[in-house]
Design a protein around this nucleic acid. Structure first.
Lengths: 256, 256
DNA sequence: CAGTGGTCTAGACCACTGG
DNA sequence: CAGTGGTCTAGACCACTGC
């Protein structure tokens, strides 16, 4: 890494200056190490002093880089202990991606959700599934369906699609037997870390068998939640289509 | 302000140390000035050097305080120009609170929404409206209804409730004549700045006349969006109940 | 007690804006 | 060109953790 202060770098004559602060470059390097698996989810990364030495940079510069990684939820700082690679296998981040909360009570106050895997099989991607996952039509994908129940009431039915290659070996049994967040399983078993997601939300009438699984009348309004989840580098790794009952729960969002 | 390094302050014997870093205290002081209206939305606040001198603190400390205010969207930094009080009267923040985007195109690509104020009148708050707005049942509130249309299609019908006291003088005409974001009107006319909001989202069947305003069949699934918007200090200042058609638009959310 | 992240400072220099 | 925010450094000290 550059021991020197950042230089304005012209890629070629007339190019945009493309100035990038040192701490951004350091952030990029740490990001690379995270992606490459040099440090696994849950583990500590080297101390700020160590990283400063490694990159020949002051501690303050490393600090600013890590600050941004922490803001992106890629890393968690713990005073007196160190900085750790973020993981989905923690209680307090259980509901980072599931925004459905009960009308009365707090997220998770109903106890752990009951999960029923209906199915998990290997299929060929349709045109739209492939497009969303960045694959080609006909590429192999794993398709699964599950029902989540809270306090005994089936509340969510989800279909999900995963590119087959990175998730080779995933089976219905593996999904059914695992107790804990699905994204935590992905981390430990397949080395795939979900970093962010985009959701498209609509109101739709219950149909296609969803009404049976959720035990509501056909045509009952359901929240349709289509989620595309990304790993590092904005690579899509999961498509999920969920249908939520919202008679006892609601989707909570905060605007800043 | 304290020129001295922060002292651990015990409020009384045995109390929690309640340690608060200097920059947090500075942030609080700047926040007070924002609330008191010392600097109006859109105006520049004093430079970092000026604030550092005023609070007898280093520039770095002021910087960290302002960094957090910027992260909270209370203030906007512009290199070479200064730091400005955030405002809703800017193009690029038009859609900070409206998360509904068209299926094809980008937010706002349909041109400005057409707004029809149906009604605005003074009523007494029901129990639940009062509770949400932090008032007492029977307190005066302004109630309004409006329809938003995109590309000629009525897409959103919203009812909204405002505490009557801070919004004294608001009329149907005032709302109808104003072109620009409603929250910008609130800033300039009533000195009320919306800082954050919470939304509860459900899927519900069209009814109560919403089906007529949106020109859909009764029972059509609509997205129900209940928004509680807050000013400084977590004081609720607006309750909004919106019903969104989601056949040509969707509610977009990003999870980090 | 040593090691970690967290705060604060002072000073130098850079990038950007506008007159 | 002066003024603003943005970056980088070096050093001191504080708060928290675990041995």
């Amino acid at each position: 890494m550059a021991a020197l202060p950042t230089l304005p770098t012209d890629d070629f004559a007339g190019a945009t200056p493309a100035f990038s602060p040192l701490y951004q470059q350091i952030k990029g390097l740490i990001l690379q190490s995270l992606q490459s698996g040099e440090w696994k989810p849950g583990e500590a990364i080297p101390s700020e002093m160590d990283l400063a030495a490694r990159f020949r940079v002051s501690q303050g510069t490393v600090r600013k880089a890590i600050d941004e990684l922490a803001a992106d939820n890629l890393v968690v700082r713990r005073q007196g202990k160190g900085t750790f690679v973020a993981t989905h296998a923690e209680q307090h981040v259980q509901f980072r991606f599931l925004k459905l909360v009960p009308d009365s009570g707090t997220p998770g106050s109903e106890g752990p959700a009951e999960r029923d895997i209906i199915d998990c099989r290997r299929v060929r991607a349709s045109a739209d599934i492939a497009r969303l996952l960045g694959l080609r039509t006909g590429d192999a994908v794993l398709q699964a369906r599950r029902v989540l129940s809270f306090a005994g009431t089936p509340t969510i039915v989800e279909d999900l699609w995963l590119p087959a290659a990175p998730f080779k070996g995933l089976t219905t049994e593996r999904l059914a037997d695992y107790h804990g967040p699905m994204y935590a399983l992905f981390e430990t078993e397949f080395n795939v870390r979900m970093v962010r997601a985009e959701e498209k939300i609509r109101a739709v009438p219950a149909s296609d068998g969803h009404e049976l699984l959720l035990k509501v009348a056909q045509g009952t309004p359901l929240l349709s939640v289509e989620r595309l989840a990304y790993t590092y580098n904005d690579v899509p790794m999961e498509l999920r289509r969920g249908y939520y009952r919202t008679d006892t729960h609601y989707y909570r969002n905060t605007l800043n």
